[in-house]
C-alpha cells in the first residue's frame, strides 16, 4: 500500500463518510476532519423522535451519530489505513436532547495500536456546556489490502 500524506488521508476519509447511505439518510454533515479528530452535525428531524410526547430524539439516532463520528476519527488518524469497523462502543446518556435542536458530535481517536484504535466522543445540542451523551469505543485497524494480503 502506498503511503498517503495526511492531507490525502483526510480527503479519503471525507469521501468515505459522505458515501455512507445511512449517514446520508440521517442528513449527517461532516463539519471538521483532522488527524484523529472528527466533528459531525445532524439536524433535528421528526422521524428521529423516540418519545412522541416530548419530541425528544431517540437514543438510537444519537448512537448512530456517535458511531459514525468515531469511525471518521479513526480513519482520519495518520497511522490507520483507510478502513475500520466497530469492535464495541459504550454510550452514556446524560440528558435528553432539547426537542427542535440539531445535534453535534465530536470524536477523538486518542490511541492506536497495530490492531486497535481507541476513541471517545461527546454529543451536544445547542448548549455546548452540557453534553447530551458520551461514548467510548474500540475500533479495528484493518491492515488487509484489496488482494487479501496482510500488509
Amino acid at each position: 500500500m502506498t503511503e498517503m500524506t495526511d492531507e490525502q488521508k483526510i480527503k479519503v476519509a471525507r469521501q468515505f463518510m459522505e458515501a455512507l447511505p445511512h449517514s446520508h439518510h440521517l442528513q449527517m454533515s461532516l463539519e471538521r476532519i483532522d488527524a484523529g479528530i472528527a466533528e459531525i452535525s445532524m439536524p433535528y428531524d421528526e422521524k428521529l423522535i423516540g418519545d412522541p410526547e416530548t419530541g425528544v430524539v431517540h437514543g438510537g439516532a444519537v448512537s448512530a451519530l456517535m458511531d459514525t463520528c468515531c469511525g471518521a476519527a479513526v480513519i482520519s488518524h495518520p497511522s490507520v489505513p483507510t478502513a475500520t469497523a466497530t469492535i464495541d462502543i459504550r454510550i452514556d446518556y446524560m440528558r435528553p436532547a432539547t426537542p427542535g435542536q440539531g445535534l453535534f458530535a465530536r470524536a477523538e481517536c486518542y490511541h492506536v495500536t497495530r490492531s486497535v484504535a481507541f476513541v471517545r466522543a461527546t454529543t451536544y445540542d445547542d448548549d455546548r456546556d452540557r453534553p447530551v451523551a458520551t461514548a467510548t469505543g474500540a475500533f479495528t485497524v484493518e491492515r488487509t489490502t484489496r488482494s487479501g494480503a496482510k500488509s
Partner: peptide, 8 residues
C-alpha cells in the same frame, strides 16, 4: 451501519 445495529 454500526449505528443501525446499536439503534436496533
Amino acid at each position: 451501519h454500526g449505528g443501525v445495529t446499536a439503534a436496533f
